[in-house]
Each structure stands twice: as structure tokens, then as C-alpha cells.
């Protein structure tokens, strides 16, 4: 590729195969196939957290991380759209500090739409969605200040988080907020687990919108994802067996195994 790999075709084949499986499951789901999705406690806790904010009469904080406009940010906005519908219904005050200007403009639209969809456009305050700074620690200090000053009741952190994750989570903990967090950056997961009440781990993050909305397209895509993971897991098992056979120099099988290993060796 561009062109890092000399052997791009095996990667392309696996990627296309996974894509076909995902699309096939989406089409099946759209045709009305019933799909099961396991319980994700962190997502179930969203309503509990909003309810708590309603009881306490304190704001709900939503942080879409510090990443740019990407699928990760879109996924976060999808979850926040659901949260905003609930807060519109119960009349909670929301705060949504944003670090990326592009995410900010889309976020404003998404939250405004959520309020409109609930029939309470008048409850939407434009100032609740705020661009703070695109510098990591300037943003971190801004969010920490908001948490302290506004004494938030619930905090939702979904998106791309780096070193600032613990600053948000621990400051939220200081003011006694109930906190739900999820990120694709595995190094930040331990910090969230230590300081938050619920944490979404790994690809649960991408399952969130399907879990919340129960939209057939998303549910189908989620099941397709699992099939994709199964495909990769199978390749891992086959690879392990092949590596063993190649190392043992088993006649014929060993050569075939070596061919398979070479297919996926990029260095």
C-alpha cells in the first residue's frame, strides 16, 4: 500500500469479507429477523444517572472527548442524543463542553434535534454546548472547573480520551457525581474503571447506539461485527496451528502452513 504493506491483498480480502458479512446481517435485520443483544450494565445505568440528576436538580455533563470529527465522535454524539432526549423530557440542565470545533457544530445540531424530537425545543439552551479549547490540558482544566462550579449530578464521558480522562473522572468523583464512561482507547479504561461507576469496555462502545436505539440496521450491524470477530478469531487459531506445524516441519502440512503464515506476515 501506500503503501506500507507489500502484500495488501490478504488484508483487502479479510476486510471485504468482514464488510460483506456486516452488510448481510444488516439486510437480514432490516427484513425483520429477531436479534438478541446481551445486557450492558453501563448503558442501563444512563437512565438511573439522569434520574438522579432530576432528583437533585443539578446539571448533567456530557463530554465527547478531545478527538476530532470521526466515527468515534459520531458514536459519542449518538449516545448523547439519546441522553439529551431524556433530559429534554425531564427538564434537566445539560452541559456539553467540546474540544473540537467541528464536533461542536455537529453536537449543537444533534442536541437541538433531540430536544425538538421530544417536543421541547424551548428547553434547549444554546450555551449548554460550549467550545472550550482544542488544547488537551486547557480543555481538561476547563471541564474540571465546570464540574466543580456547577456541582454536576451525573457525568457521561464517551469518545476519545487520553491523559485527561482521570482528571475528569476524579473531579466528577469529588463532587459525588454518578459517572458512566466509555472510550476506544484501552489505556484510559483502567482510569475510568477506578474513578467511574460504570465503564463501557472495548467494542461495547460501538454497540452502544444499537443497544440504546434497538434500530434494526444497527442491531444487524452489531451481529455482523460479532461474525467479523469470529472470522478474525478463526484466523488467529488457524495461524497458531499453522505456526506450530511449520515449526515442527511436518511434511506437506508444514509447507502449506508456512504459505499461510507468509500470507499474513507484513514484516
Amino acid at each position: 500500500m501506500q503503501h506500507a504493506f507489500e502484500k495488501i491483498w490478504p488484508v483487502l480480502i479479510v476486510e471485504v469479507l468482514t464488510a460483506v458479512i456486516i452488510i448481510w446481517r444488516i439486510v437480514s435485520a432490516q427484513r425483520g429477523k429477531e436479534l438478541f443483544i446481551r445486557r450492558i450494565p453501563g448503558l442501563n445505568a444512563i437512565d438511573e444517572a439522569i434520574g438522579r440528576a432530576t432528583e437533585m436538580g443539578r446539571p448533567v455533563l456530557m463530554v465527547p472527548g478531545i478527538g476530532g470529527f470521526s466515527i468515534i465522535a459520531l458514536q459519542a454524539l449518538s449516545i448523547f442524543s439519546y441522553i439529551a432526549r431524556s433530559t429534554a423530557k425531564f427538564g434537566n440542565r445539560i452541559l456539553m463542553p467540546v474540544a473540537d470545533p467541528t464536533v461542536y457544530t455537529v453536537a449543537e445540531e444533534v442536541i437541538r434535534d433531540a430536544y425538538q424530537a421530544e417536543g421541547h425545543p424551548e428547553r434547549f439552551e444554546a450555551d449548554s454546548i460550549r467550545f472550550l479549547s482544542d488544547r488537551q490540558f486547557a480543555f481538561a482544566s476547563g471541564v474540571a472547573g465546570l464540574i466543580q462550579r456547577e456541582q454536576i449530578a451525573s457525568s457521561f464521558m464517551f469518545g476519545e480520551f487520553f491523559a485527561e480522562s482521570l482528571i475528569f473522572a476524579e473531579t466528577g468523583n469529588m463532587v459525588g457525581a454518578i459517572q458512566v464512561a466509555g472510550t476506544v482507547h484501552t489505556t484510559q479504561i483502567p482510569f475510568f474503571i477506578a474513578a467511574c461507576d460504570y465503564t463501557i469496555i472495548g467494542d461495547e462502545y460501538y454497540a452502544a447506539s444499537a443497544y440504546i436505539s434497538r434500530n434494526p440496521t444497527m442491531l444487524g450491524s452489531l451481529v455482523g461485527q460479532d461474525f467479523g470477530k469470529l472470522l478474525i478469531a478463526s484466523l488467529c487459531v488457524i495461524g497458531s496451528v499453522a505456526a506450530t506445524l511449520a515449526a515442527l516441519e511436518v511434511p506437506v502440512l508444514g509447507t502449506a502452513s508456512q504459505w499461510f503464515i507468509n500470507l499474513f506476515t507484513i514484516r
Binding site: A4, F5, E6, F162, A163, H185, T187, R267
Partner: peptide, 30 residues
């Protein structure tokens, strides 16, 4: 680096020269 930029190097540069050595110095948490 203090970020996950190593993924970009691996995806876009490292494989283009099989003899290239790519070393990474991240923060401890990464």
C-alpha cells in the same frame, strides 16, 4: 510521543521499507 501516533507510522510508513527499524518512546501509561 504522548499519543497513539505509532499506529500511523506502522500503517503508513514502516512496511514500505522492510529493513526500516521503528522504535517507539511513549509515556508509561501508553
Amino acid at each position: 510521543a504522548a499519543s497513539g501516533i505509532y499506529m500511523d507510522w506502522i500503517g503508513l510508513v514502516v512496511g514500505a521499507n522492510p529493513k526500516l527499524k521503528f522504535g517507539f518512546c511513549p509515556t508509561a501509561v501508553m
